[in-house]
Amino acid sequence: MKLPYYPGCTLKKNAKNFEKAAIVAAKHLGIELVELPRWNCCGAVSSLTSDDVMHHVAAIRNLVRVQQMNDDGILDNEYRLVVLCAMCFNVLKRSNILATSNANMLNTINSFMDTEPDYEGTVEVKHFLEILRDDVGFDAIKSKVINPLKGLKVSAYYGCTLLRPREVGIDDPEAPTIMERLIESLGAEPVDNPYKSLCCGSYHTVGSNKEVVARRAYRIIEGARRNGAEAIITSCPLCAFNLDNRQALTEKLYPGFKRMPILYFTQLMALAFGYESEASFDGNFVDPIPLLEEKGLIGMKVQK
């Protein structure tokens, strides 16, 4: 299966490990992720002002690229755009919904982007997790596991952008299970966390409110730990940064706090599929290697 793929800026900078692990994991499942040619930033946050058309141009321009890939024969009638970053996914999908449900707005965008072909509203924005659930299937994933992640207790962290608003979310916004099912299919043990969809503090992390984020990280991590979690997985580079890197500040605010590894779900997949080096654990702030070693999950069978 050949699918158009939108990386987003952060996957080329701070979250290289997310992408690297995803590419090999997808390949292992028979999916070739083809990066969009000439993609641009998704817009980073979705503008909520109803007459603010300009800030949706970036997202729609990316969707035009999917049309072009089909027109150029790079893809064969494939209009599902795969996104890994939960934030980009949310922004692209929201703009797509706006443009396809509002003919006036789409017309304004199309006439503004007069150097591009018109966007015809044909693209479907999909998070990679949806492809895993709906097209590959968790049973198939289970059958492809080389190294079951036995004994590893993992909690899923969804945050906001995978679930909200409802029409954009990939699962039940109140009680999502998609990542738990993935954890299970990889042979690890899913652990629930009452704070799995609590906002991580988002962009407060770049201002003077870093403490807000560090306190959120504490609640989220401790919520998982109370249920026995040893690691947390996520699909958003901003959530990952806030939960992972901000633990240095959490440590200062909460004496006795113990660090917990935060992984991208694709890193867990790469490990289970036998691609330890591509799982790129050196890109994580809290080193997950000691935990994985303790569980006997490092130095397992390697795929060539």
Partner: peptide, 21 residues
């Protein structure tokens, strides 16, 4: 980081560069 991908820069470039890109 304020770029909204409007591509106006590219259209203005007398050298025909893909400025937005």
């Amino acid at each position: 980081a304020r770029c909204v991908s409007c591509n106006t820069c590219t259209k203005a470039c007398p050298q025909g560069l893909e400025v937005m890109d």
